[in-house]
């Protein structure tokens, strides 16, 4: 359903961020995109909804070529692609509700958004989403009054308010502490499963990605160097993605993270989600 064909991006500075990336993501499939900083992860997902214009190559969503659409039709496609950001990118001075409703901007006429008179169905859906992410009582709080984890939950609700066909997730946990990072990652993956929503999740945290996501794509210097199941991640693969000295530092994995299950209660723990994963081995390899 999402197909990238030979996608390339060269910045005006001359840096080649993407170098002929081809990738197909089927309906309901979640893909974790891993790779060192500067590998082009961020450029890749921004080329999908053309926040960054690709230099070459094509992007298809449900058979529609996004690259080459005019402004108006591009906006129509963008409203069906939800996006979640590293630094949350909430509008800090607006309320939680306004932030969630901003996911509807592509659907409502300007006067409605200006007067904050969104259609009742949108408001109702927004309340439902805030309940789903556990922020029902924060409706009229300003976004800058929330904690990091709460902000990212609002970011998720905003993306879902778009009623998306695809989720682009850019380092959702990089600004969060380890425990919150897991909760957020779990929430995103649960929601994708509930809605059979395909997603691309950028992550610098290999261990976390492998814990929740089945399909891993490794990017290095703008090229896909690995595409396979999380269980196939081994020393060789990680060396291919990160290079020998980039990932080999032990000790970044903190043991107390393992005890976090008790806070989450009923979900059965990470092991249930990824029974095939040799966590001990990965813990030693990736930070």
């Amino acid at each position: 359903m999402l197909r990238l064909e030979h996608l390339a991006k060269r910045y005006p500075t001359g840096d080649l961020a993407l170098d002929g990336v081809s990738l197909t993501i089927d309906a309901g499939q979640v893909v974790a995109l891993i790779g060192p900083s500067g590998a082009g992860k961020s450029s890749l997902i921004r080329c999908v909804n053309r926040l960054i214009e690709p230099t070459a190559g094509r992007v298809f969503l449900h058979g529609v070529e996004i690259t080459g659409l005019g402004r108006r039709r591009l906006r129509r496609v963008r409203r069906r692609i939800g996006m979640i950001f590293q630094e949350f990118a909430l509008v800090e001075r607006l309320t939680v509700m306004e932030n969630v409703l901003s996911g509807r901007l592509g659907y409502v006429p300007f006067w409605r958004s200006l007067l904050r008179r969104f259609p009742p169905a949108d408001v109702e859906a927004a309340f439902g989403l805030l309940e789903r992410v556990g922020l029902a009582e924060f409706v009229d709080k300003r976004a800058d009054a929330l904690s990091g984890g709460q902000r990212q939950r609002v970011g998720i609700a905003r993306a879902l308010a778009q009623n998306p066909q695809l989720l682009l997730v850019d380092e959702p946990t990089a600004s969060l502490d380890p425990k919150t990072a897991r909760q957020i990652m779990r929430l995103i993956c649960e929601i994708c499963a509930e809605r059979r929503l395909p997603a691309i999740i950028n992550s610098h945290d290999v261990r976390l990605a492998a814990m929740f996501v089945h399909r891993i794509v490794g990017l290095r210097a703008g090229q896909v160097v690995f595409d396979g199941p999380a269980s196939a991640l081994n020393d060789d693969v990680l060396t291919r993605i990160y290079g020998a000295e980039d990932w080999g530092t032990p000790g970044l994995d903190t043991p107390e993270e393992e005890e976090e299950e008790e806070d989450e209660g009923a979900d059965g723990g990470d092991a249930a989600l990824r029974p095939d994963l040799d966590r001990q081995r990965l813990a030693g390899l990736a930070g």
Partner: peptide, 16 residues
């Protein structure tokens, strides 16, 4: 960028 990504129009981007 986040508002742009929702498919908002230029006027809406200024507003939000």
């Amino acid at each position: 960028e986040a508002i742009t990504a929702t498919g908002a129009s230029p006027a809406q981007i200024i507003d939000y």
